[in-house]
Simulated scan of single mutants.
Amino acid sequence: MDDADAPDSGPPLETIESVFAVYETRTDGEQLLYYGDPLLAPESAMEELWPTFRDAGYEVQLTRRHGEFVLVAEPTDVGIDGIPWTNVVLFVATVFSTLFAGAQWYYVNPLEDPVGAALEAWPFTVAILGVLGVHEMGHYVMSRYHRVDASLPYFLPVPTLIGTMGAVIKMKGRMPDRKALFDIGVAGPIAGLVATVLVTVVGLHLDPVTAPQSVVNDPNSIQIRLGYPPLLELLASAFDQSLYRDDPAKAVNPVVIGGWVGMFVTFLNLIPVGQLDGGHILRAMVGDLQETVAALVPGVLLGLAGYLYYVADYSGNSVFVWVFWGLFAALIAAAGPARPVEDDHLDTGRIVLGVVTFAFGVLCFMPVPIEIVG
């Protein structure tokens, strides 16, 4: 065992011992271990110590090992170390999966003509990956700004109607304060919405796709109807563009579907539960009251599913999305929100921005996102 001398790296002991009386130090790989006794309540001790370790480049946790209190400090790294191969491989796989899915929106069979399908569907892929990537990079850039360790986006290639289940970033460590929690949470939806509006406007000005007559006349064909959120309706109206609701042979250009995805993702991420973007934003705005709101959300989503199924007479496949998200919201609400180390009140400007962001989230809501008719 070492004595209580400070390790070669990490904060000086004199900056620790007013809060945590150290009687032994150890190193375990890159970890620094400080054994001792907290001189304040554990939560208060962490509030005092966390900024000290953060300034020294470490993320710290107070835990117990074999009955002893120990501060475990791990070096933080907010940069990119080498080539992120996992991110790259998932991105490339998502490019292929969205090209495959997108070809079918253009009525091209990707199995019969893969090259032609790729040449036809690339605008769809750019639109989808653009809105998802910009959303996640908003989180990443703001995480770097606040010196919170975060990964680059992981895209999720899944054989769905759009070829992906979205993208996520992985965050490590604690949020330093409510400002960081808010800024990181709100940056994704705002950046994503800007990209979504641009993609939608471009798509609305592109030629619609026309279904082959054989598909239109086939009584066994399956029709996929997308619900249009108010924001999409407003953009179509503002630019005097048609959404081709009443023409069974025509549909909006698939690039518009990229904008639709951006709006749907924005709404889902702004659901104010757990560690979704909406949960981060609302927790920063109202503190612990967020957990009360989050407890109500699953019931609202499941109630919406019940209304659509039993009263509005929609099919099960049309309302399943809200059953899934109701159960998922209950799960992540139970896990709780992120808790910043410094839990002071948020400034008025950020609160106003949060309200505006949630308002845009409402404009992205659609009661029945997808209806399959066959």
Rank of each mutant, 00 (worst) to 15 (best):
L363T: 08
T160C: 10
L234G: 10
T292R: 14
N87G: 10
D77C: 14
P114W: 03
V148E: 01
V186C: 05
L193C: 04
T292S: 13
V286P: 02
P367Q: 06
Y244D: 06
A117D: 02
A180Y: 03
Y244R: 05
V88M: 05
G306M: 12
F96H: 07
L49H: 10
F69K: 04
F360S: 12
N269V: 09
P298T: 11
A121S: 14
D343K: 14
T86K: 09
A121P: 09
L243G: 01
V92M: 01
G287L: 02
L234Q: 14
A330P: 00
I372K: 01
E48K: 13
I83N: 03
V22N: 03
P298K: 11
Y34N: 01
D8I: 11
L198W: 03
L161T: 13
A73P: 05
A312D: 07
V19F: 07
V134D: 03
A21G: 06
A359G: 11
M1N: 13
I257P: 08
W325I: 04
L156Q: 03
S315W: 13
R174L: 10
T86V: 13
P230V: 06
E74P: 04
G258Q: 13
S214M: 03
K179F: 08
L346T: 07
A284P: 08
V321D: 05
V115S: 09
G354S: 00
P369Q: 04
E47N: 05
T94L: 08
H345I: 14
A294W: 00
P219W: 12
G36M: 10
Y23P: 00
A103C: 06
E14Y: 15
L156F: 09
A127R: 07
E371D: 10
D183M: 03
V300K: 14
P189L: 12
V273C: 10
E59V: 15
L181F: 03
L232R: 12
D77F: 15
V72C: 01
P42T: 14
L327N: 00
L331W: 15
D240P: 00
L40Y: 13
V201D: 08
V255C: 10
V126L: 15
G326P: 00
V148W: 01
A167C: 03
T292C: 02
V362E: 05
I83D: 09
G306F: 05
W105S: 00
F91S: 02
D277G: 03
L193R: 08
A294E: 06
D218A: 08
S315G: 15
P157C: 09
D246I: 02
L49C: 09
V215E: 12
G82Q: 06
G57K: 07
A101Y: 09
S151R: 04
A333G: 07
Q104R: 15
S214Q: 06
M263I: 04
L296K: 14
